[in-house]
Simulated assay, not measured.
Amino acid sequence: MPQRGNRRELLAEAAIEVLAREGGRGLTHRAIDREAEVPEGTTKNYYPTRSALFLAVARYIAAEHTAALRELRSQIPVGLSGEDITALYAAMLRRMGTSARSRFLALFELHLEAVRNPGVRDALGDITQANVDTAVELHAAVGRRMSRRGAGLLDAGMLGVALSMLSLPDDLVEELGFDDADGLARALLSLGSVRDEAAVGVLRGWAG
C-alpha cells in the first residue's frame, strides 16, 4: 500500500481492495476509511459522492495501466519474437488470477458502473486504447500486422477469459482449459490476428 503522504493514492488502493472484496455495493466512504486505516470522514472529504469514488478509482487504474504500457512500448527489445509475445500475454493471464487479482475484480465492477457513468466509461476506454496500441506495436515489431479491430478483439477476449477464470467453478475452469494460460494466449492471439472479414464471420456465426 502507498505511503501515507500520498492520501489520494492511499484511498484509491484501499478502494480497489474494497471493490474486489465487497463489489460495487460495498464501495462506501466508511469502508474505504476502514481499509485505508484513516479517520472516518477522510474519503468523503476527497470524494463527496459514490459516483466520484467510482470515477477516482477508474482514473487511478487507467493512469497506472496506461503508464505501464507506454513504458513497455518504449522498451520493445530488438529481436522480439512471436513466442515472446505469446509468453507476455500468458503471463498477463496468470497475473489476472494471482498477483493482480484484486485489480481485475475491481475492473469488472468498474465495467458494470461504466454502463451508467460516462466518466468511468471514458477511463476504461483509455485502458482499452492502450491495450490496442500495445498489441498493434508488438506485432509490428515482429513483422506481423494486427489491425486495431483485431487488437480490440484480443483485448475483449483477454477480459472475458479473465472473468471466466475468476468467476467459474474450478472444475469447469479446468475442463474448459481456462487454467492453461499458454494455450489461451496462443488461441486469443490467433483470433486477434485473423483478417477483419474472417473475424466478423466468426462473430456472426457465434451470434447465430
Results as ranks from 00 to 15, higher is better:
Met96Gly: 15
Ser74Gln: 06
Ala90Ile: 07
Leu72Ala: 13
Arg101His: 06
Met96Glu: 10
Thr86Glu: 14
Leu138His: 04
Asp180Phe: 11
Arg204Val: 11
Ala62Ile: 11
Ala31Trp: 03
Val57Pro: 09
Leu72Pro: 00
Ala52Asp: 14
Arg121Glu: 01
Thr98Val: 02
Glu197Ile: 13
Thr98Leu: 08
Val120Leu: 02
Gly152Cys: 09
Ala62Asn: 07
Glu37Val: 10
Ala90Glu: 03
Leu189Ser: 03
Gly208Tyr: 01
Gly152Thr: 13
Glu17Trp: 02
Trp206Pro: 00
Glu17Phe: 03
Ala12Trp: 03
Ala156Phe: 10
Asp155Thr: 14
Arg25Gln: 05
Ala91Glu: 10
Ile85Gly: 01
Pro77Arg: 14
Gly152Pro: 08
Ala198Ser: 08
Glu13Asn: 12
Ala151Met: 14
Pro48Arg: 10
Ala15Val: 05
Tyr89Asp: 09
Asp196Ala: 02
Glu197Gly: 08
Val132Trp: 08
Met96Ala: 13
Glu174Arg: 15
Asp155Pro: 00
Arg94Tyr: 00
Leu153Tyr: 09
Leu112Glu: 15
Thr42Tyr: 05
Gly97Asn: 03
Asn117Asp: 15
Gly183Arg: 09
Met146Asn: 01
Ser193Asn: 11
Ser81Glu: 15
Ala68Asp: 09
Asp182Glu: 15
Val136Gly: 04
Lys44Glu: 14
Leu105Arg: 15
Ala31Ser: 06
Asp171Tyr: 04
Val173Glu: 04
Gly152Ile: 08
Gly41Met: 07
Ser147Gly: 04
Ile127Ser: 01
Ala187Cys: 10
Ala106Met: 04
Ser81Lys: 14
Ser164Cys: 11
Val132Phe: 04
Leu203Ala: 13
Gly23Phe: 07
Tyr60Ser: 12
Val132Gly: 06
Asp196Lys: 01
His65Cys: 04
Leu191Cys: 06
Leu107Pro: 03
Arg50Val: 10
Val132Glu: 06
